[in-house]
Structure formats: structure tokens, C-alpha cells
């Protein structure tokens, strides 16, 4: 039997693909959050980091393509498995439906998944493609001139004097809109719930879970998801409440100072 065909056709094969792509995405969202938290430092940090990513060129595209394939396979497997499972119940549903041991997160995987997918599309349109809020997209903002050399673990990201996109201002202006921020918070909340079952489940699917440490696994997943949610909440939360204010001299600071009352007007093109 051809390996790939089996993985895409059999029940356990599809679950395995779902678990692998899920694991890749968990890795990605973790790294993505850590990168984004640099918004709380000087603008040089996140702008230098974004510049570095952009400068990867074809490598960046390879990574993007790989992640897109992962999302596509994950969603395809979710739909295929769900349709098969629906059909498997047979012509008649139970009159009384009871949950006995399933965790709450596990009961809403499809719902949380769909909201996350909708959010993902919006999020890419917002910060990657620039079609959701073209007025505050990085290419529409004045460019940022690096004040210092930016380094990560000693690795140079951007040099002093480099002229780069002002991602820092884009994020501040984007999240100044309460609707955008609240959708973001709801979506990352549901993503955290999705991952709460997902992380537990993927170990079972790959065959690495047993009663000996299943309790620990659930606790680790819970702590991870809480930390992930709080980390993500911090960005729109701090911007929306004004706890985090854009650094003096940035475009976002000028723009928000010009219209402090109606923050949402700042995002109008």
C-alpha cells in the first residue's frame, strides 16, 4: 500500500495528518506570539524583526507555503473525518444524548476550528495582504528609520539607519479599533480552547499518551493554553485600554494623539 495514499485514505492516517499539521501549527502560533510580544519594546525591535523576516525572500515564501499546506490538510482532514463520523451514526439519532467523559473543549472542536479559520483569513487580509484596513497597512504608512542595530541572540536583523516598514505603528493603529481587537481576542480565546483538546488529542493519535502521564499531559496543555491566551490578550488588551502607548515620535503616536477620543477613527483610511 502506498504510504501517502494510506495516510490520506484511512481513518487513522487522516487523524495522523491532523495531529502532525496541528503540531506544526501549535509550534507556529507559539513562535508567532513570542515574535509579536516585541511590540512592547522599542519600535526598533519589532520593525527590525519584521524586516528580517521580509528579507528572507524565497525562504519566507517556502515557510508560508508549508504553513498554508498544513492549514489546508488540517481543514480537509477535519471536514472529511467529520462527514464520515456524521454518516456513521446511521439513519436514526439517539433521543437522549449524554456526555460521559469528553472534555468541554473536545465537544466544540469543529466550532472553535471554524471561527479560527475565519479569523485566520481576516488576520492575513489585515496584516499580511493589507486588504482589510488598507489605510493603516504598513505600505501606506511612512517608513521607519532604524535608530539602532537590531540583533536577536547576537544575530543581526537590521542595521542602524535602515529604512524599513513601520509594523510597530501598523499594529498599534490596527488594534486601536475595538471591533478588530475584540474579534482578535475572541478568536485567540477559541484557538486556546481548540489547542487545549488538540494538544491532549494529538499525543493519543500519535500513540504517545497513556494513563501513566495523561494527567500531567492535560495540565501541561492547560498551562500552555492559559499562557498562550494571556500573551495574546496582552497585545490588543494593552493597546485598547491605553496601558501600552506607542513610543514618542512614532507615526502611531502622532496619529493617536491627533484623535484620542475616537480611536477607531484612527484606522479610517
Amino acid at each position: 500500500m502506498n504510504l501517502l495514499v494510506s495516510l490520506f485514505k484511512t481513518s487513522i492516517g487522516k487523524k495522523f495528518l491532523m495531529a502532525l499539521t496541528g503540531l506544526v501549527m501549535v509550534g507556529f502560533v507559539t513562535g508567532h506570539l513570542v515574535g509579536n510580544l516585541q511590540i512592547f519594546f522599542q519600535p526598533d525591535r519589532i520593525n527590525g524583526y519584521a524586516h528580517f523576516l521580509q528579507a528572507l525572500g524565497p525562504v519566507l515564501w517556502a515557510i508560508r507555503l508549508f504553513l498554508l499546506v498544513c492549514v489546508a490538510v488540517h481543514v480537509w482532514a477535519a471536514v472529511a473525518l467529520t462527514l464520515e463520523s456524521r454518516a456513521a451514526r446511521g439513519p436514526e439519532a439517539y433521543a437522549i444524548k449524554k456526555w460521559l467523559s469528553a472534555t468541554v473543549a473536545s465537544r466544540y472542536m469543529r466550532l472553535s476550528g471554524i471561527v479560527v479559520l475565519a479569523f485566520l483569513i481576516y488576520h492575513l487580509a489585515h496584516f499580511t495582504l493589507g486588504v482589510a484596513q488598507p489605510g493603516t497597512f504598513k505600505t501606506a504608512l511612512p517608513e521607519w528609520k532604524m535608530l539602532e542595530d537590531a540583533r536577536e541572540f547576537g544575530f543581526p536583523l537590521a542595521a542602524k539607519g535602515d529604512v524599513v516598514h513601520d509594523v510597530y505603528s501598523m499594529v498599534f493603529l490596527g488594534f486601536a479599533n475595538p471591533v478588530v481587537s475584540i474579534f482578535y481576542i475572541i478568536a485567540v480565546g477559541l484557538l486556546s480552547v481548540h489547542m487545549l483538546h488538540g494538544i491532549d488529542s494529538l499525543f493519543q493519535t500519535i500513540g504517545w499518551r497513556s494513563a501513566k502521564w495523561s494527567c500531567l499531559l492535560r495540565k501541561v496543555a492547560l498551562v500552555y493554553c492559559i499562557v498562550y491566551f494571556l500573551g495574546n490578550l496582552a497585545i490588543p488588551g494593552a493597546i485598547l485600554t491605553g496601558i501600552a502607548k506607542p513610543a514618542v515620535g512614532t507615526y502611531a503616536a502622532q496619529k493617536l494623539a491627533a484623535s484620542p477620543a475616537a480611536t477607531s477613527s484612527a484606522v479610517q483610511p
Binding site: K14, L81, A88, R89, T103, M109, S201
Partner: peptide, 10 residues
């Protein structure tokens, strides 16, 4: 024609 496990342990 059985369905697929979703690791809910019912």
C-alpha cells in the same frame, strides 16, 4: 462504515 475517533473517551 464506523466513524473516526476524536479522543473523547466516551
Amino acid at each position: 462504515g464506523f466513524g473516526n475517533c476524536s479522543n473523547q473517551y466516551e
